[in-house]
Design a protein around this nucleic acid. Sequence first.
RNA 1: CGGGGUGUAAUACAACGGUAGUAUAUCCGCUUUGGGAGCGGACGAUCCGAGUUCGAUUCUCGGCACCCCGACCA
Length: 413
Amino acid sequence: MHQSQLFTKTRREDPSDETSKNAKLLIRGGFVHKEMAGVYDYLPLGLRVFNKIVGIIREEMNAIGGQEVVLSTLQDPELWKKSGRWSDEAVDNWFKTKLKNDAELGLGFTHEEPLTNLARSHIVSYKDLPRYVYQFQTKFRNELRAKSGIMRTREFVMKDMYSFSRSEEEFRQFYEECAVAYMNIFKRVGLGGITYRTFASGGSFSKFSDEFQTVSEAGEDHIYIDDKKRIAVNKEVYKDEVLKDLGIKKNDLREAKAIEVGNIFPLGTRFSEALGLTYKDENGKQMPVIMGSYGIGPGRLMGTVVEILSDEKGIIWPESIAPYKIHLLSLGTEKKVISAADGLYKTLTKAGVEVLYDDRDLRAGEKFADADLLGIPYRAVVSTKTIAEDKIELTERKTGHTSKVTAKELLSL
RNA sequence: CGGGGUGUAAUACAACGGUAGUAUAUCCGCUUUGGGAGCGGACGAUCCGAGUUCGAUUCUCGGCACCCCGACCA
């Protein structure tokens, strides 16, 4: 991509209406645009990051047997009445709308009801189980207060997976496999090591759930971490009997603020019974399906990465989710510099390397500042100096380490 | 939803009730060219609606929006 042709521009100053680091940096870099409180657009660079995160999640979900679907956003109230979740008293963050004939509709904030109902057409026998279905789908939640930039918004894409199993054991086995897959995801996007599986309340779903919490001062949750066991407990269930059940000692715990980057829930038969999702077992007996649900918000994950991986100059994307791998800068207006940079861009692009090429007619300082802000892992500089040596100047964003490399070495990064 | 704060140009900020100004960005010209250059010129704004006043960006009321703290958070 030629940066001179990029749809977005960077900004020098922080937006005045944002305090969170993720929103400041992402807006300054032109990754996202704020439409209104709690509603953000993803722009070309931001969408590339977002899609890479989605790609990683998709790979991990497919690897444990997930099958991808996309359900509708518009929701039929009848299904939600059956589970007792239609009323505003039961769920206070509904966005509701109406058809022309005044019939009410909901905008989905999650999809247990429609997917359970849908599964009734396809899961009827023990031979049809287990099944794992997931989607990347836009959710709407009428939060009383949106905050923390792109971390807590009223409209957001969620990867939500639902498991359908025959027995508690079969469910539990998948639940644990999914927990492992989740940890893989967090590791792959650069949050390994500081993300903990965290015991938490199950809300109105179940007795408990497991959250995945990334330690950060920007977090809204308080957790207690057992570093030896590499697990944590959410403050909301931090009680003596819970710790005892988990076999955790109070003195082994340290408190930390954390961002909830994922959550998995055992649903039991809460929805299968409410909506009539049953199967016939080997003996012809009608049984309720055992369910679970598993959520990750790719946008929140992106915001979390920015909170954790950035410095005073800008973002530091891990290579796995960076919008581009190499940021190629040409310095100066000399013809031989321009043609050398043009040639290098073509070579890299042809070899399949993702390159953002800063071909703009700007001074060096401005290009460097933008490169630091955008946070692409490798910065390759072509200038009069580098041409004289027949090398390219390569700087790693993460470490700031600079070296002189040949075009061939750049290709094999 | 309770409490507090703020709405001025694309962005960030000024302006005693009396000609809306500065910086950045953008455009033009000249000089400059490895860490956000200099000079000259240009474009461009008071959230909406009432009220008070000779006169309102400024004061009052209502609305809307945004931010912060709390509550809430499948």
